[in-house]
Deep mutational scan, measured.
Amino acid sequence: HNLTITQGKLFFHYNPKLCLSEIHKMEEVSGTKGRQERNDIALKTNGDQASCENELLKFSYIRTSFDKILLRWEPYWPPDFRDLLGFMLFYKEAPYQNVTEFDGQDACGSNSWTVVDIDPPLRSNDPKSQNHPGWLMRGLKPWTQYAIFVKTLVTFSDERRTYGAKSDIIYVQTDATNPSVPLDPISVSNSSSQIILKWKPPSDPNGNITHYLVFWERQAEDSELFELDYCLKGLKLPSRTWSPPFESEDSQKHNQSEYEDSAGECCSCPKTDSQILKELEESSFRKTFEDYLHNVVFVPRKTSSGTGAEDPRPSRKRRSLGDVGNVTVAVPTVAAFPNTSSTSVPTSPEEHRPFEKVVNKESLVISGLRHFTGYRIELQACNQDTPEERCSVAAYVSARTMPEAKADDIVGPVTHEIFENNVVHLMWQEPKEPNGLIVLYEVSYRRYGDEELHLCVSRKHFALERGCRLRGLSPGNYSVRIRATSLAGNGSWTEPTYFYVTDYLDVPSNIA
């Protein structure tokens, strides 16, 4: 807008934040220059609390790290170098490059900038070799853009010569660093050979998330399962459950009422301010606690030095998902009996873990797994792929695949051998790939016309006998059925096997 004052003059007093240069501009645009008398524009009460600059400061050096910015700028000295009290560095987070010096300023003089007072450097006698002032900004957020400017702080001049310097606002972004852990990993099994893994992005990506790394490792069953005799009275049979499938998407929606109208769909109840505040506090606490764990609990591995020492970490090797089922080394339970199943799973520490690289999504279907087997899954978020990966501390989750139908069934015939004193040795093959492992066998036998009897055969007993022995049988026709019990439950009964026990007292003698 054009402003013209045809008559009258300007009068400025007691404006401590208004620089004289701005008042002189007002004289020019209003056409009143030359009308004012000496005392109409006070030299001592206008701009006496402001830094009124008329020179431009330029930054000469900028260096960044993930949490620091090192700045240096060209030296500046007023005509009387004693008038320079120091520099004021202003900075704040700036997602967009549209910041002005006066953003967030209120009537009390406060604003949204963080201000650092910096002492002037030592003055050199040689004007050509003056030290460049600077400042190291610490405690910054990774991968965050900051708006920065600097200006001088000078003393009051009796001659009211307006001098000083100020830089333009520059924008500097800190470097990326390792992201925080992925949030809320959930693993479920939808079949006997697959596990579905879902997660949420890290709360602090500290860069642009480029991919996720998912490692999985087959877990050995508890050692007590191999040692305890679950045929003993009072000892509860062990059981394991597989990871249940995901709930429906509708039930997972946030901010939804727990109660549904019987007449149909209901609208979600909005969260109160107290609920939102509580969630923010919980989120802040979780982030602080995660940072504490990362800094205190997890110790970084030592990389190899120039002395030739090897990095103890196993090298990563990509495998196809079809090879995942046989990740671990199978060892027989008892070496003397080769027909026992290889369900003991000690994992070799030198073995390469299978892994998958996930790009542009937060889910993965891990296939080719062994049925009813526990897996430990390790999830890392990465925001750099080359020249070397920059990934987060791992988040861990466990899951067990679903049982395989008929995996616990005894394959092959049940054979028998009759000894003296009416002892019958029953023999059968253990299931080759049971659900988890076989903890015991149930032997059901009966003599024709009598009630059915049951015998429990422990895992250890089966390994020693290759089956079991029935003792003290009365003469007669017998039928026997056997079924295995694994961590997933009972298998199917075998087809009945028949044998006849004679009275050993009636056996004919070869003595003449």
Rank of each mutant, 00 (worst) to 15 (best):
S203W: 03
S203G: 06
D204P: 02
P205T: 03
N206W: 14
N206L: 07
G207Q: 01
N208W: 15
I209P: 04
I209E: 08
I209K: 15
T210N: 15
T210R: 02
H211T: 05
L213F: 14
V214D: 00
F215I: 08
W216H: 08
E217C: 07
R218K: 15
R218M: 11
Q219L: 07
A220S: 12
A220V: 05
E221V: 04
D222I: 04
D222G: 04
S223G: 04
E224A: 11
L225K: 09
L225M: 10
F226S: 04
F226V: 12
F226R: 11
E227L: 13
L228G: 14
D229F: 15
D229Q: 15
Y230F: 09
C231K: 01
L232M: 12
L232F: 11
K233I: 14
G234S: 09
L235T: 05
S239T: 10
R240C: 08
T241K: 09
S243H: 10
S243D: 09
P244S: 09
E247A: 12
E247L: 11
E247I: 05
S248R: 13
S248E: 01
E249K: 14
E249R: 08
D250T: 15
H254T: 11
Q256V: 08
Q256A: 15
E258W: 15
Y259Q: 05
Y259L: 03
E260K: 02
S262A: 05
S262Q: 03
G264E: 14
C266T: 14
S268N: 14
S268R: 15
C269L: 09
P270A: 09
P270V: 09
D273E: 11
D273C: 03
S274K: 06
S274E: 09
I276P: 10
L277P: 15
L277I: 13
K278A: 15
L280H: 13
L280N: 14
E281H: 15
E281N: 08
S283F: 06
S284L: 06
R286P: 09
R286M: 15
R286F: 09
K287T: 14
K287Q: 06
K287D: 13
T288W: 09
T288C: 11
E290G: 15
E290F: 15
Y292L: 06
Y292K: 10
N295P: 05
V296C: 15
V296A: 13
F298M: 14
F298L: 13
F298H: 08
P300S: 07
R301Q: 04
K302G: 08
T303K: 06
S304G: 03
S304T: 10
G306L: 07
G306D: 12
G306P: 09
T307L: 07
A309L: 11
A309S: 15
E310D: 15
D311E: 13
P312F: 04
P312A: 05
P314R: 06
S315Y: 11
K317V: 04
R318W: 15
R318C: 04
R319L: 10
R319Q: 05
L321H: 07
G322W: 13
G322Q: 04
G322K: 04
D323S: 05
N326R: 13
V327P: 10
V327F: 12
V327A: 07
V327E: 12
A330H: 10
T333M: 13
V334W: 12
A335H: 08
F337Y: 09
F337V: 07
P338R: 11
N339V: 11
T340F: 11
S341I: 05
S342I: 05
T343N: 14
T343C: 04
S344R: 14
S344H: 13
V345D: 08
V345Q: 10
T347I: 13
P349K: 10
E350W: 11
E351P: 10
R353K: 10
P354I: 11
P354R: 08
E356Q: 05
E356R: 12
E356K: 06
E356G: 12
N360Q: 08
N360H: 14
K361T: 08
K361Q: 09
E362H: 12
S363D: 03
I366W: 02
I366V: 08
S367W: 09
S367P: 11
S367C: 13
S367E: 13
G368P: 08
R370T: 15
H371C: 07
H371S: 10
T373G: 12
T373K: 07
T373H: 14
Y375V: 06
R376H: 14
L379D: 00
L379A: 08
Q380E: 02
Q380F: 15
Q380C: 04
A381E: 00
A381M: 01
N383S: 09
N383W: 01
Q384H: 15
P387Q: 13
E389H: 14
S392D: 00
A395S: 13
A395Y: 06
A395F: 12
Y396Q: 12
Y396I: 04
V397Q: 01
V397W: 14
S398G: 05
S398K: 12
A399Q: 12
R400P: 02
R400T: 06
R400M: 06
T401K: 00
P403S: 07
P403A: 12
E404D: 12
E404Q: 14
K406T: 06
A407W: 10
A407G: 02
A407H: 13
A407K: 12
D408P: 01
V411S: 09
G412E: 03
P413K: 09
V414I: 12
T415N: 04
E417R: 09
E420G: 07
N422R: 06
N422Y: 08
V423Q: 08
H425A: 13
M427V: 05
E430F: 04
P431E: 01
P431T: 02
K432F: 09
E433V: 13
N435A: 02
N435Q: 01
N435E: 01
G436V: 07
L437D: 13
L437W: 01
L437E: 10
I438D: 03
I438W: 02
I438A: 05
V439A: 06
L440C: 10
Y441C: 02
E442H: 02
E442P: 01
V443Y: 01
S444C: 03
Y445C: 10
Y445Q: 04
Y448R: 15
Y448D: 01
G449W: 02
D450W: 08
H454A: 04
L455N: 06
C456W: 01
V457W: 10
V457S: 05
S458W: 03
K460E: 10
H461P: 04
A463S: 13
A463W: 12
A463M: 10
A463G: 10
L464S: 12
E465L: 11
E465F: 13
G467M: 07
C468E: 01
R469F: 13
L470V: 11
R471N: 12
G472L: 07
S474F: 12
S479I: 05
V480C: 15
V480W: 06
R481E: 10
I482Y: 00
I482V: 06
A484E: 13
S486R: 02
S486G: 08
L487F: 03
L487H: 00
L487V: 12
G489F: 08
N490K: 09
N490C: 11
S492F: 03
W493T: 05
W493F: 08
T494M: 01
T494A: 11
E495K: 11
P496L: 11
P496C: 07
F499K: 02
F499S: 01
F499Q: 01
Y500P: 06
V501Y: 07
V501T: 04
T502F: 06
T502N: 10
T502G: 10
Y504M: 03
V507N: 04
S509Y: 07
S509C: 01
